[in-house]
């Protein structure tokens, strides 16, 4: 039962893209955990400092990803390249870059 749903891409850029997406997922996961932790520990300054650190790291990586491969969020999107990549590129459930 082999699956043929994945689109082919250049091996090197594909691996790099996957790595960067994995890093973004990891940092965003830390942010989500700190978010829930802070909801029940709202006066933990150290957790807030950590949140600030990872939030800046995530924003930097999302910017890099958007410049190199395509948009992840509509707040950071390239509108000068003549292509609305938000819609033309694969959607995440296709599993292509994960």
């Amino acid at each position: 039962m082999m699956n043929t749903g994945y689109k082919t891409c250049n091996v090197d850029t594909c691996a790099e893209r996957r790595r960067l997406l994995q890093e973004i997922g990891k940092v965003d996961f830390v942010l989500k955990e700190l978010n829930l932790y802070l909801d029940t520990h709202p006066y933990d300054q150290q957790a807030m400092d950590a949140f600030k650190h990872y939030n800046m790291a995530k924003n930097k990586m999302v910017k890099e990803y958007t410049e190199k491969y395509g948009p992840l969020v509509l707040s950071i999107v390239d509108t000068d390249c003549g292509e609305w990549k938000w819609a033309t590129q694969d959607w995440p459930w296709e599993g292509g870059y994960h």
């Binding site: 997922g25 996961f29 830390v30 955990e33």
Partner: peptide, 12 residues
């Protein structure tokens, strides 16, 4: 190791 944390499903 945050990679391990991500795989585990919690950072704690």
């Amino acid at each position: 190791n945050l990679d391990e944390a991500y795989k585990t499903g919690t950072i704690f």
